[in-house]
Design a protein around this nucleic acid. Structure first.
Lengths: 243, 243
DNA sequence: GATAGGCTGATTTTCGAAAAAATCAAACCA
DNA sequence: TGGTTTGATTTTTTCGAAAATCAGCCTATC
């Protein structure tokens, strides 16, 4: 009957790390925003040192930037960063996919089909606004992960995961501005089919196009949002804006 | 005339991070070793929280492993890890090289020649034991970095750097056991020449062989060292071993 | 004799106060 | 006026004591 806020022997710092990462990825903490300790301390209900520990890890993950003696800032977004991210992601995802297709067994295939199904059902249930849902974002991530789960290289998988998470911020930004969406569900289905058919070149081609098209969409629809993030980084207090 | 222990406004935690990373890479902190706070606190002369912050970043870099509620451990080494590392490094280094050769300008070429020269001269001066030198390790790292410095992708370069550092632990381990070394200086010269000749396929081929041969050497000469790192991780106190 | 439960000492984790550093603004001089 | 210094205020960084947790050991009980 004992309450269990923390799932398993998880450290408080690790818990804050998870929550904070989620908040950055979902843009609840906006790109370029200054992270003041006093505010964060309330927000996450932990002490300075614990916060600092979580922030430090996020720095190493590239989601937060530390400016020596000047505190922390949410990693800003920019078209250059997005393009570079896309470039590296294409390289890494293609390789992961080739490896996974080579090594995957029946269980791996089954997991893919299951993950697709879960994502697809929620998509149907949510209707045309599915991409705004936090829950769908999670299932979408799970689906993409399932495709490469059989990739036998832990290092490559870890790199892939970090890149995927960073890209999520951009996906999210675009989804707020879009009017009509390309038939993404069809794309996902095609990718899945080619993977299960063990067609490496086709699967690679499709995943590459999938990533690149998302990027183009983001730049077209939300690119104007992050041309001048400098302003955000040195953002003035509210009362100044009100004058 | 004011003393400057810390180069620029560098935070104490960042300083400890650097020193600790160097100590792990150079194996002054042995793979698999338990990192007790009391000991580290003396060693680096900082407080718990500051230590914890540095350790947290190293966790995100993959050089340290955090076991929830049970402290930190230097990331162990293993043949599996080395093989995986090698695989990913080949992929990444090849790509970096292609990109650098495409984008590099005259200054880039000059830097490569300079870096090679520095490494080569120290090598000559140190004689057959050059590879044990900390200083040579640094220049060797600088040379390899100079080759890919013109790679226009910050993300790829950062990934490369982290992988390179992790690989250094293995290079170091092998160098303690080797009796005779392959003509590495010739290899480096050939790689440099092919890069400056802008011969992408040849440069990629050479760098791949360079990496793979190092790995084979490590496994052959030092592989027996890290078959059972479990033992180290749960190391018994000295007095037990003496019984 | 084996196992669960509880104690004890060692180790990790968290906390908020205190020190250090940066920022902002008013006062000052050229 | 323009630029620098000074001092008060805010914000970050560091510290070590206190709380929480773990590992080993002992005991009670079946």
């Amino acid at each position: 009957m004992r309450e269990k806020l923390k799932p398993a022997g998880e450290t408080r710092a690790a818990d804050v790390l998870h929550r904070m990462r989620a908040d950055i990825i979902s843009c609840a903490l906006k790109p370029g925003a200054k992270l003041r300790f006093e505010g964060l301390r309330e927000m996450y209900a932990v002490s300075f040192s614990t916060l600092r520990e979580a922030l430090s890890r996020l720095v190493a993950e590239g989601l937060v930037i530390a400016e020596d003696q000047r505190g922390f800032v949410v990693a800003p977004v920019s078209i250059d960063d997005l393009n570079d991210l896309t470039y590296v992601r294409v390289l890494v995802e293609r390789e992961c996919l080739a490896l996974a297709i080579k090594n995957g067994d029946d269980g791996w295939e089954a997991d893919i089909i299951g993950a697709f199904h879960r994502m697809d059902r929620l998509q149907t249930r949510l209707g045309s606004n599915y991409y705004l849902s936090e829950e769908w974002g999670k299932l979408h991530g799970d689906f993409h992960f399932s495709l490469v789960a059989a990739c036998a290289s832990p290092n490559l998988l870890e790199i892939r995961q970090k890149l995927f998470e960073r890209a999520h911020r951009y996906r999210r930004m675009s989804s707020q501005f879009r009017t009509k969406w390309r038939a993404k569900d069809v794309e996902h289905k095609m990718i899945m089919d080619s993977v299960i058919a063990r067609d490496v070149p086709k699967a690679q081609e499709l995943i590459e196009r999938h990533i690149r098209e998302t990027t183009e969409n983001v730049i077209k629809h939300a690119g104007h949002l992050f041309v001048a993030h400098e302003e955000v980084r040195h953002g003035r207090p509210d009362h100044v804006a009100a004058e």
